[in-house]
Simulated assay, not measured.
Amino acid sequence: MNREIEIKRPYRHFKGKLYYVHDILIDSETREKIVSYQCLYEPYGMFARSLEMFLEEIDPNREDNITKQKYRFELYKG
């Protein structure tokens, strides 16, 4: 995996909504890297997802891939 997360930046999910990446955390038991991120829409919930899953490629032809992105989350430059 050669993509890197830029913390303190917005990302767009392939379903179109925006999220703010707060930080990269380390699971104390498994040492797995975890992304901490927050919705940029109400109710502004906080989430955590493995770095591997955050960066994974998705099928651009998925019916719910309204942005036609290559990756689950992509840096938002809008």
Rank of each mutant, 00 (worst) to 15 (best):
L55N: 06
Q38C: 05
I34W: 02
R12Q: 13
G16C: 03
D23T: 07
M46A: 12
H13E: 06
K70P: 06
N65T: 04
H22L: 14
R9N: 07
Q38K: 14
E74R: 01
D27I: 00
Y41S: 13
F47V: 05
D27W: 00
P10N: 03
M53L: 13
E74A: 01
S36V: 07
D23I: 03
F73M: 08
A48M: 15
F14C: 11
D64R: 01
I5L: 05
Y41F: 15
F54N: 08
E42M: 07
L75E: 10
M1L: 14
S36Q: 12
L51M: 12
E74C: 01
N2V: 12
G45Y: 14
K33N: 11
G45E: 15
P60Q: 02
F73N: 09
Q69I: 11
D59Y: 07
T30S: 02
I58D: 00
P43N: 00
E63D: 14
K15R: 11
K77M: 11
T30W: 01
K33C: 05
R3A: 09
H22I: 15
F54C: 05
E56V: 12
Y76D: 12
K15M: 11
K8R: 10
G16P: 08
N2L: 08
H22Y: 12
L55V: 08
G78N: 05
M1R: 15
V35F: 00
L40A: 00
M46V: 15
P10A: 01
N61K: 09
N61W: 03
E6L: 14
Y44N: 06
N65S: 02
K8I: 05
R3Q: 13
V35S: 03
R49S: 15
E57K: 14
F73A: 09
L55Q: 08
Y37L: 09
E4G: 14
E6V: 13
N61P: 09
K33S: 04
L75Q: 10
A48Y: 12
Y19F: 09
L25C: 04
